[in-house]
């Protein structure tokens, strides 16, 4: 007396709400863009203020954005921004910093080793692993094709 899975899927699909994908993408595009503009302005500022190369200035900018995102997470309202901006804040470096800080805060109560230490990379671990692997792979391709 249980319905076929295929038939049930039809019922589920019939009652599925439509997600506002276009609106979500637009919000992410604008907010992600704003983060990018802030980053660019920061780089320009560091380069002219400290009289350093753009490459060094962009490292300063990244560190600053990571700090700001982590601080806002710790102060407790970055999660609400992420829920609203979605990938606009998740894809830039702010999302990476936020994923580590939020995990850090969550597992602090289980102590420095079994809590914070083992769980801080809970979300960011995959990004690091596959980031390193793909960097190595593309570096190899570059060496083969372009000779270094």
């Amino acid at each position: 007396m249980i319905m076929e899975k295929k038939q049930y899927k039809k019922i589920v699909d019939k009652h599925k709400p439509t997600e506002t994908r276009a609106q979500n993408a637009f919000i992410a595009f604008v907010t992600g863009g704003i983060v990018g503009v802030i980053g660019q302005l920061m780089t320009e500022f560091y380069a002219s203020f400290f009289e350093i190369s753009t490459k060094d200035a962009s490292t300063f900018m990244l560190v600053t954005l990571i700090f700001i995102a982590s601080l806002l997470t710790a102060l407790g309202f970055f999660d609400k921004w992420v829920t609203f901006c979605k990938c606009g804040l998740i894809i830039p470096i702010t999302g990476f910093a936020h994923s580590m800080t939020s995990a850090g805060i969550e597992y602090k109560k289980e102590g420095p080793i079994y809590g914070l230490g083992s769980n801080i990379f809970k979300l960011a671990g995959s990004v690091i692993l596959y980031g390193v692997v793909s960097a190595w792979f593309f570096g190899l391709l570059r060496l083969i094709i372009m000779g270094g």
Partner: peptide
């Protein structure tokens, strides 16, 4: 949220369902 999904401060976006 902590046990089944993401850290509570992460605020991952969710669908309407």
């Amino acid at each position: 949220e902590k046990q089944f999904r993401n850290p509570t401060e992460y605020g991952a976006p969710k669908p309407k369902t």
